[in-house]
């Protein structure tokens, strides 16, 4: 474990806490894409299958369980909560997630480290996580004024992956033989997708104005 990876995990944890706080405090999920949340739950469930058969550390197990439960909780809020579910704008959240999930599954079946069920599903989760934020970014472009907490949520999500990039560079420099091409390439693409959001987020923050993404 290095500081970059720990900071990345904490940023990821914080992003989900910010999202849960926003939904719970405002009793509203306006601007939040249910599709992205469902994709994240699929990412966590397919990636953390090793919870069933291998133990790495208490930290590792706790964080995996937290990510699965918290994303499930967000989805419950948006789908079932009597007040919050009224604020979900399904007419705007229309990204065709199958256009993301199917190519990722086909790619996972062809490009992977091992052709076993758990390895293919794990690889699928790596590819899917790279594109899972797209429905959320599309929704932000459509809903003109993005509320601050939702903007912070997306910014923290991008920050977590950027910190993981630093973690991989650090591990390449300090751990001879450490190679994870699938994770590195997928993670770099994932961080690149955030770049234009980062640009508008920082610009709005510096000009002290509401964040709005150009459609």
């Amino acid at each position: 474990m290095n500081i970059f990876r720990f900071a990345g995990d904490m940023t990821h944890l914080l992003s989900i806490i910010v999202l849960l706080l926003k939904i719970n405090a405002t009793k509203s999920c306006a601007g939040v894409s249910l599709k992205t949340q469902e994709l994240y739950l699929l990412v966590f469930v397919t990636r953390y299958l090793d919870l069933l058969y291998s133990y790495i550390s208490l930290y590792n197990t706790f964080m995996k369980l937290f990510f699965i439960c918290s994303s499930g909780c967000v989805i419950w809020y948006i789908r079932e909560h009597k007040t919050v579910s009224q604020t979900y704008d399904s007419a705007q959240d229309t990204f065709r997630v199958l256009f993301l999930a199917c190519p990722c599954m086909i790619l996972a079946l062809t490009v992977n480290h091992d052709f076993t069920v758990t390895e293919v599903l794990w690889t699928f989760s790596i590819y899917l996580e790279a594109v899972a934020i797209l429905p959320q970014l599309v929704l932000l472009q459509r809903t003109k004024n993005v509320d601050t907490l939702t903007g912070n949520y997306v910014f923290l999500l991008g920050g977590y992956r950027a910190l993981y990039l630093l973690n991989w560079i650090y591990r390449i420099l300090t751990e001879p033989g450490y190679r994870q091409w699938i994770v590195w390439i997928s993670g770099t693409i994932q961080t690149a997708i955030y770049c234009d959001f980062f640009y508008y987020y920082i610009k709005s923050w510096r000009n002290n104005e509401r964040l709005s993404l150009p459609s």
Binding site: M1, R5, D9, I56, N60, F67, H113, T116, W122, Q180
Partner: peptide, 10 residues
């Protein structure tokens, strides 16, 4: 890489 590679990252 390959079978049994420890996936210690989240």
């Amino acid at each position: 890489a390959g079978r049994g590679r420890v996936k210690d990252e989240l």
